[in-house]
Simulated scan of single mutants.
Amino acid sequence: MKINELYQSIINDLKNGKRPLVKLNEQVLDDIYESYSQCLSQSDRELLMKVLCILDNTQTTTRRFEEFILKSFETFTDSEAIIFLLGTFQKQVAEARFKDGHRLEMSHLQLLERLLEHDDPEVVEWTLRIIESIGSQGLFFKKKIFAMKPNFFERFNKHRKAIFQIIEMLEKRWGH
């Protein structure tokens, strides 16, 4: 199945309220790998979004795309792309590593730390969601996270409200 066909199938399922979670075989993974490589070499944002959609809506986790995902954070810096990258990072980097018995590396933690300072509160929210999911490695961010708790008036923004709620949950978990 070609990338465009697979992407369209996922989009149709999502529009119909279905959770796609497709299984990818080696041939499809090879096709995605080739497409992802092309998208990075040509800075093709449209292709990136299709690839990320597929990788985020699959049952297949693989560390095969880890380097591409990390490089994408440098190449595609708009908020929408970063949010999609974070979803894919969670599944294809964090979950794939944990499934294989590996923790996130310092470079991964440093990337997440930089994203905590992003201007877009939605990027910060999704970064916090990943940090919340990485267990004890999240303690790396404890001081920074507790210092960034939104004030009362900022909580009227839905993403800042979510940030506040995630930080409160982490405070309870980590004992602040």
Rank of each mutant, 00 (worst) to 15 (best):
A162F: 00
T88R: 01
N157Y: 08
K172E: 10
Q27P: 02
M106E: 15
K15M: 14
K71N: 13
F153N: 10
F164L: 03
E168H: 08
F153R: 10
P20H: 00
R103S: 14
D120A: 06
D120Q: 08
Q59H: 02
I82G: 05
I54Y: 01
T62E: 01
Q165E: 14
Y33K: 12
E66T: 15
I167D: 03
R97V: 01
D119P: 07
E154T: 02
E74Y: 05
A96T: 12
R45F: 09
K149L: 10
T75Y: 00
E171C: 09
H108A: 03
N157S: 15
L6C: 08
S107V: 10
V123M: 08
E113P: 03
E34F: 06
R103K: 14
L21W: 09
F76Y: 14
E105A: 10
T60V: 04
R160I: 09
L70R: 15
L139I: 07
L21N: 15
L14T: 04
Q8Y: 05
H108T: 01
S35P: 03
R19E: 15
S35T: 05
L29E: 15
K99Y: 06
R97C: 05
T58L: 03
D44A: 00
T58A: 07
S107N: 12
T60G: 01
I82Y: 01
A162Q: 06
K23Q: 12
I83V: 13
E117N: 11
M49K: 12
S9K: 13
I166D: 06
L85D: 11
E74T: 04
P121N: 07
S133V: 10
S37M: 08
E125T: 01
I69A: 04
K15D: 15
T61W: 04
A96R: 13
K144M: 12
F84R: 15
N16P: 03
L29G: 07
E132I: 05
F89S: 01
K142M: 06
D31Q: 15
E132C: 08
H108D: 14
L40S: 05
Q27C: 06
A94F: 14
L85G: 04
D30S: 15
Q8H: 10
L170C: 00
P20E: 02
T60F: 00
M148Y: 05
L139K: 13
M106V: 14
N4S: 11
